[in-house]
Nucleic acid binder design. Structure first.
Lengths: 351, 351
DNA sequence: ATTAGCACTCCGGAAGCGAGAGTGCTAATG
DNA sequence: CATTAGCACTCTCGCTTCCGGAGTGCTAAT
């Protein structure tokens, strides 16, 4: 039952089997109903079969171990961050995402199968839906993009569209302003002439090539290189999110918390906070409350995974919610979506 | 001072010059501070120079005309929807967007000038910022897209990327599954062979052409036509929004209203509600409270405009906020952004 | 080890209260 | 006749007070 991959490796306090049952019930019940769990409720609604007084003793122990806390003298117990952590590590019944959901999701992806640009958007929407939280997805990004193909399309005498396709099937378009007027025929000829030479190269390799003699060709190459390099820089990785409604619906997230999260997502601060934490892990990772790197995320729970093809293309995908969130369901969803997206990328890439 | 273009053409009640001053003050003050305006406050803080008792009489008249209302016996007055409408029609000092903002915006656009895909995103962000509300922008959509260029790039033996560029410089990429394996050389040859023939045509025109004899060519054409037709359908116009933080920050929009708006924006319901209203107007339009088509929008104010090139490419762009919003600033922002986006499109298109 | 019983604490909603703000009306004023 | 000072009235809002309910820890009995 121990899953070393889901997060912090800290050793957890030893507690008895019955205490584990109590903790598990508290977490599940609190996540579900949103209010603290009392000893009487637990005794009656669970199958534990001991009286509330016994539960109270167990709860006191759990509180001593720092796994639950009482907000007020008579308010029942809620899990601490550590309690959630213990739950995720040792108590979670890891189920696959229900087959119904899997089928539904695959069906939706089949609808937009031919539209690459929509995958990320759909992934975010689906993830938000199945996990019931705010989802966060970045577009797949090649580690070192290699040029597969490029094309020049004249828009105006001195303006053209440069479209490039990488080996990873990512398409990028930039506008190019020419120093002097160039017609479409010349553009096509240029593209054809150069394309073969630089196909399969990275930005760095293009830059390192012996210079082309022709001035225009050199200019084109410089543009291609710049565009390709643009794909390398993390700077423009945009975070797609979805499902904010889910979050606003949570009682504890009325106003300011939702705002704070939005601000984090917008400026890229979210990525910068989360990315460094998960470089080397392949599976789903969970950050709970104050385990989170950034102070601004202390009231949140995060479940993330990377997806893509080892060492070549990677994207990030996860859900964010209040600390009190359904980690089980989120983990299943994230894991499934990561696998699905990876498969999709692989199909594209394997050629 | 009368602006027929800003919305409903209904005749407005006749009120005295001083009542207009009072109404104007009430609207501005209420929009700014968010709480009802009393007679004493108005008498003291404005330059009107009459006593509170006089104001009270004027207010009573305004209430009789349905332009303001008192929430409670002693709560001061707030504008009614009709009051806002009168304000927007007759009382608004229409200023251009401040030069500082204009410069700042142009500067930001210059940063992403070469990246077409980012224009819409940036427009949404900027609009949310300058108007201080939720912004809503759709990507430009050609009325009848004409093919300018297309390209086939093999990803795998039986899988290729079809990239097409319309006359309006919109780029679309779809994946194409071949019935049988095709190599890149064949693809390029096919594309070259067909491109010239169908360049400049609409989907309908392509469909109407005499059939090509070659089976593969026919298949390619069918794909091109389908992709082009995909651009025609309104279905996939996605609404880009931004600035939800601004809205959450408003006291009256804590939870459910923001949720409702998000739901509207997500499903395309927003577009369906707003679009039919503004087909024939060129300038900015304003919908206030219950003037809005959809019931779900009754608590909102909407300022929208279309942008693009007459009859060829159009997009929509606007801001949504609580009924109590700064219409003046929103109108300036929307008008300016619509013009800017139109100019950008024109630059692309004029060739 | 478990549990019934009990005194204790604290939250949360209801009720009560007073200050403050704003109103409409009336009578006085220029 | 328009304006204004004065006044009695009303209503909100924030504050306190006051239980009922729920949950706890402790103790003594089983």
């Amino acid at each position: 039952m121990s899953h070393g991959h889901l997060g912090h490796p800290d050793e957890m306090p030893d507690i008895t089997a019955r205490q584990r049952v109590v903790l598990k019930f508290i977490v599940q019940e609190y996540v579900h109903r949103g209010r603290p769990v009392g000893s009487k409720e637990l005794s009656e609604r669970s199958t534990i079969g001991v009286s509330s007084a016994t539960i109270r003793n167990e709860m006191a122990d759990l509180e001593g171990a720092g796994l639950v806390q009482a907000l007020h003298t008579s308010g029942g117990r809620i899990p601490t961050d550590k309690g959630y952590r213990y739950f995720v590590h040792h108590l979670l019944d890891e189920a696959e995402l229900p087959a119904v959901d899997q089928i539904m999701i695959r069906h939706q992806f089949r609808q937009v199968e031919v539209q690459l640009e929509r995958w990320v958007e759909l992934a975010a929407a689906v993830l938000a839906e199945t996990a019931g939280n705010v989802s966060v997805v970045t577009a797949p990004r090649p580690a070192v993009p290699r040029l597969r193909h490029f094309e020049l399309i004249g828009l105006q005498p001195r303006l053209a569209l440069l479209i490039l396709v990488t080996h990873e099937s990512l398409v990028r378009q930039v506008m190019v302003h020419w120093p002097e007027p160039v017609d479409q025929a010349t553009l096509s000829r240029l593209a054809d002439a150069i394309a073969g030479e630089v196909s399969g190269l990275t930005a760095a390799e293009i830059a390192a090539r012996p210079r082309a003699t022709d001035g225009t060709a050199r200019f084109v190459l410089a543009q291609v290189e710049a565009a390709l390099r643009g794909l390398e820089t993390v700077g423009d990785t945009e975070v797609r999110h979805s499902g904010l409604q889910n979050m606003l619906a949570q009682p504890e997230f009325g106003g300011t918390d939702a705002q704070r999260l939005l601000d984090l997502l917008r400026g890229g601060a979210f990525l910068n906070a989360v990315l460094p934490q998960l470089a080397h892990h392949a599976d789903v990772q969970v950050f709970i409350g104050d385990e989170n790197p950034s102070n601004d995320l202390h009231r949140f729970g995060i479940v993330v995974s990377t997806y893509g093809i080892d060492g070549e293309v990677t994207g990030l995908l996860g859900v964010v919610g209040p600390t009190r969130m359904a980690y089980g369901r989120s983990i299943s969803s994230v894991r499934y979506m990561a696998r699905l997206m990876s498969d999709l990328m692989a199909d594209l890439h394997s050629a």
